[in-house]
């Protein structure tokens, strides 16, 4: 009875949900899976659809991979010690909105518009498809990239979780 009451309150509380998380991890490829799983676990209270979870995981994976292989490329890694090579992930839920920020303090992007063009890659030798930003744009509602050469890059993404909203209206 008491448990049932708690569950019900939890369900009702979903409309007014607000939550935030921040983490910082080493810029190594093992953490790509960790980052996208952490974000998908974080959005679970919004009751997202499988499709939405997939979209979010893909976008996070793209942003984190970019930070690891472009923000901190070999040249940067040779010049800087390990301590500085971290990726910061900051997520916020407000009602049915999800805000994600992926930040690195690596080499930065000189020409953001060029970097965001589909199929453009600065590292063809890595067989990157050049679709990273295009995927983030396709799978999220809003994408903003702020970067300064020598300082790093911040990727901001937003997504409205529509199914959660519809479920609340029922």
């Amino acid at each position: 009875m008491e448990l049932g009451q708690k569950i019900e309150n939890g369900m009702e509380g979903r409309t007014g949900i607000r939550n935030e998380m921040q983490m910082s991890f080493d810029a190594i490829s093992e953490n790509e899976a960790f980052a996208r799983l952490a974000v998908s676990a974080f959005v679970m209270p919004l009751n997202p659809t499988v499709e939405e979870i997939s979209d979010i995981k893909t976008a996070v994976s793209e942003a984190v991979t970019n930070a690891i292989i472009h923000g901190y490329d070999e040249e940067y890694r040779q010049e800087n010690d390990r301590e500085t090579k971290k990726v910061q992930l900051h997520c916020r839920i407000e009602k049915d909105m999800l805000y994600i920020q992926v930040k690195d303090t690596g080499k930065g992007i000189e020409d953001i518009a060029k970097a965001m063009e589909p199929l453009f890659t600065t590292r063809p030798e890595l067989e990157r498809s050049g679709m990273g930003f295009a995927f983030m744009e396709a799978f999220m509602d809003r994408l903003e990239v702020v970067s300064e050469p020598g300082c790093g890059t911040v990727v901001l993404m937003e997504k409205r979780l529509r199914m959660a909203e519809e479920a609340d209206e029922l």
């Binding site: 994976s61 793209e62 498809s129």
Partner: peptide, 13 residues
């Protein structure tokens, strides 16, 4: 169950 643009890179390559 999951694939990002890296998978596209593998195929195109």
């Amino acid at each position: 169950r999951f694939m990002d643009s890296s998978g596209i890179g593998i195929i195109i390559g």
